[in-house]
Design a protein around this nucleic acid. Structure first.
Lengths: 127, 127
DNA sequence: TATTTGTTATACAACAAATATAACAGGTAA
DNA sequence: TTACCTGTTATATTTGTTGTATAACAAATA
């Protein structure tokens, strides 16, 4: 498991870990059914406390990205996930804010869409 | 100034304020050169401390959305803003994470782009 | 001079983030 | 059974963030 943390970032550790796991799933480095390292293993591997890893795993579980099996540990869910409406609304709020920012930075609609397509090309074909 | 705060949200007050000001500028409710309420005025108006408003104004200043003039107070910057590369990189990171999430939620590229276009339609013609 | 700006400083309370230990409960395998 | 591996729970501590409360300061205005 390749995780890179910036301990000087203003972004919390559990959030950095959260984001990197989501990106790994989207890119196909992790796929449905794959098991993640045990909380103690990953914690030691990247030099943080086991509770911090556990917190990340539980958020990912609540949002539908992971299943936590007492026997096997944390597993990547069957994709696509089916998020709660609350989570989906939050997702749209974030998207609205990002589009607003891009507009104020002078990006045209086409520029923004081109950037999106660029990212989507890294996700093609999995799930 | 129409601001709606949720004091039960897990999102900090200064961040809620930050987001609503950005959306107001993007939608044209606030435009280049407009002055925002004085920190004390807005703080009293929405029932929070002046330092919380001041924190928001300063973040918006650092990111380029506002100019803070000692005589006139806080003004909306000339648009479009020209963000620091650091801020632009952060913007792209957020966009990447959002596209990844949408992919894992089963959204197709076209669905995502349709949602983006929908937001951009509210921004047309200003700046 | 009095008022209005943002700014700075200090203190305090409440909360979140992260760590440190320890112990517990369920499942697996020697 | 015993030992070991999961995640889980509980408690305590440290540190940083958030938000409030007061007070004072400097610059510009009227």
């Amino acid at each position: 498991m390749l995780i890179e943390l910036d301990f000087n970032s203003q972004k919390p550790i559990y959030e950095q870990l959260y984001e990197q796991i989501i990106l790994s799933i989207a890119k196909g480095t992790l796929t449905s059914g794959d098991s993640l390292p045990a909380v103690r293993t990953l914690a030691e591997e990247i030099g943080i406390n086991l509770h911090t890893v556990n917190k990340t795993y539980n958020i990912l579980k609540d949002e539908g990205y992971l299943l936590i099996d007492r026997r096997k540990g944390a597993l990547v869910s069957k994709l696509p996930i089916t998020p709660k409406t609350e989570y989906h609304d939050h997702f749209l709020d974030e998207l609205q804010l990002l589009t607003a920012k891009s507009h104020l930075m002078g990006m045209k609609e086409d520029d923004f869409i081109a950037a999106c397509k660029n990212y989507f090309n890294h996700y093609k074909g999995e799930l």
